[in-house]
Nucleic acid binder design. Structure first.
Lengths: 215, 215
DNA sequence: GCCGCCCTCCCCCGTGCGGGGGAGCGGGCC
DNA sequence: GGCCCGCTCCCCCGCACGGGGGAGGGCGGC
């Protein structure tokens, strides 16, 4: 019961964001992270995840090679390759290497979660599906069902939204009718939960994970 | 010669980003800004812009009403309505109100510029065009032809890219093999050019204007 | 030649920010 | 009743950050 996920990405920021999103789900769990394709086989052998969420571009050993070597082993996990652009030439290589699917990094959180569940149950996400997901993203009005709210409390989410609008702590305090100290507490909690060093990194995570949408 | 543009948006950040993009073009010029639909008629009468770039959602008087009142006047400017989602119900109202076109905020800078030129020359941007622009956005690999490079020097753009990755000044200094003071200088210049108060706002602008893409 | 821009580096200074504590209060759960 | 948790507010502290200057070298345009 429950799907164990290994997150592989060379960007610490992205890993933190994905972890936050995934761990918010009751049926999903991040059992480990790797920052490099070369670390993947060891982590997989040790942690035995059900699904590996793997970035394409990484130093040393890229996601394609890592996928290939993984799938060659015994009882391999499902692999979802995460890429930035859908016409990335790596995508075709990823499918040939045996990936069960791939996602765009700009995909909305709930779609990432759905994708993990799908491949865990044996489904395959094909190229057009990613396109459709993308289209669906834009078809959705403002009902962005971002999901790490469950990790962030409502108040913390309020604060993050304002941080992501460029507001200072003092401004946020005025807008929320609380003291600056309170805002500092919330911001501190947000940073801790997102594993961000400062508000700038928090904003980046908010954009990268779809907590807020550009435009 | 040259197209005069009035930028209307309640978000100071967005206005600054659009101004930076537009003013970088030799044939375009931002002659003024308005933060509210109610300010628009006065600004138009005073500045007589060729094109008004107008946000839909604004306090007091929204972009639709502002467009309607503008088009009712003598020698009205062309109006391009800027919206967040293409299925926004306001869009149809905008076209009925007499807008010459509309854009998605997530549209790439160069497409925004092209749109301004098109409507100034009497062309009309229809709904499908926005969709196509959107599709084209994703079809484009990494060749993001962001345009405010002309305002930002190359070095400044380098620094902004790293700032937008969450790096501290010291980290940027190490990565670029220069002293922290130099980085501070560049960051300061970037903030000034983007009219951003701090690095957090600069990152927001970078995302909102498409200087960097999420994912 | 000179001027202007870009890149580099330096000083000082104030402060917003983030980390470390702690604390009171309400509501929900057991 | 006790416990946990979210929200609120407070202290202290160190430091990275941003604003204000200035300065020198390289390079291209006028």
């Amino acid at each position: 019961m429950g799907i164990d996920v290994l997150v592989v990405d060379d960007e610490r920021l992205i890993r933190a964001g994905l972890r936050a999103i995934i761990d918010a789900e009751p049926d999903l769990r991040v059992v480990g992270e790797a920052s490099d394709g070369a670390e993947v086989p060891g982590q997989v052998a040790r942690l035995r995840p059900d699904v590996v969420l793997m970035d394409v571009r990484m130093p040393r050993l890229d996601g394609i090679q890592a996928t290939r070597s993984l799938l060659a082993g015994a009882a391999p996990p499902k692999v979802v390759v995460v890429t930035t652009f859908e016409n990335d030439e790596y995508v075709y290589d990823a499918l040939r290497a045996g990936a069960s699917g791939f996602l765009l990094k700009r995909t909305r959180p709930e779609e990432i979660l759905q994708a993990i569940r799908m491949v865990a149950h044996g489904d395959t996400l094909l190229f057009p599906a990613a396109i459709r997901a993308l289209a669906a993203e834009h078809a959705r009005p403002a009902g962005n069902g971002a999901d790490w709210h469950r990790r962030l409390t409502e108040r913390e989410a309020d604060v993050l939204r304002l941080v992501a609008k460029g507001r200072s702590n003092a401004e946020i305090a005025r807008e929320l009718f609380v003291s600056p100290q309170t805002v500092k507490t919330h911001v501190g909690n947000v940073l801790a939960k997102l594993q961000a060093r400062d508000r700038t990194q928090a904003v980046i995570l908010a954009y990268e994970t779809g907590f807020i949408a550009p435009g």
